[in-house]
């Protein structure tokens, strides 16, 4: 039961997996987490798959993945069914118009947090600006940006531009 995405899970994993069940050591969990961040996909899912795999091989990995998504699956399905039923009520509409303003601010805060971690030099700043402008102006799939930037990261590093 974790609120607010990936990072919220770390202390809970620590308590359940390390302290209570001794399934893994804390530094192993930190390693899982670091790898979870540098592989595609949802960090919490990646970490759960890892711990499951370590304990019981491939079936363990799959079981842990199902376990971590199951609560969200039920809770969100219930919320979605309620929301679609009440979406046309005027008060609900006004409430969501207010909530959308809050979502803007939450996304902005999230971007600022990620920005501090990701923009480490001039080249990464340039990449950020280029991707942002092109993504706003052009109707191109994000997949294209991701592939080009992964190759860009490798080329920039090889050219020795990184860190300057």
């Amino acid at each position: 039961m974790t609120f607010g995405g990936g990072y919220a899970m770390l202390p809970i994993i620590e308590r359940e997996i390390v302290d209570k069940r001794h399934w893994a050591e804390l530094d192993e969990i930190m390693d899982y987490y670091a790898v979870g961040q540098c592989t595609p996909g949802v960090i919490a899912v990646n970490t759960a798959t890892f711990i499951g795999y370590k304990l019981a091989g491939v079936p363990g990995g799959i079981a842990a993945t199902i376990g971590v998504v199951f609560p969200s699956l039920i809770i969100i399905t219930v919320i979605a069914s309620v929301l679609t039923a009440f979406a046309e009520v005027p008060a609900v509409k006004s409430a969501f118009a207010g909530i959308r303003v809050c979502v803007c601010v939450l996304i902005f805060n999230s971007v600022m947090k990620l920005y501090k971690k990701a923009i480490v030099d001039k080249a990464s700043l340039a990449l950020f600006i280029i991707v942002f402008i092109l993504a706003v102006l052009l109707d191109v799939s994000p997949v294209v940006f991701v592939i080009i930037c992964a190759l860009g990261g490798i080329s920039l590093t090889r050219l020795g531009v990184r860190g300057k």
Binding site: C38, R100, V103, C104, I107, F108, S110, V111, L114, Y115, K117, A118, I119, V120, S124, L125, L127, F128, I129, I130, V131, F132, A135, V136, P142, F145, V146, I148, C149, A150, L151, G152, G153, I154, L156, T157, R158, R162
Partner: peptide, 21 residues
């Protein structure tokens, strides 16, 4: 090296999605 390029890309894409909101 790939993630050095992917991280600013991810932030740029999220910021652009924020503009739509």
């Amino acid at each position: 090296a790939a993630f050095y390029g992917l991280q600013p890309c991810s932030v740029g894409l999220i910021a652009a999605a924020g503009m739509l909101v």
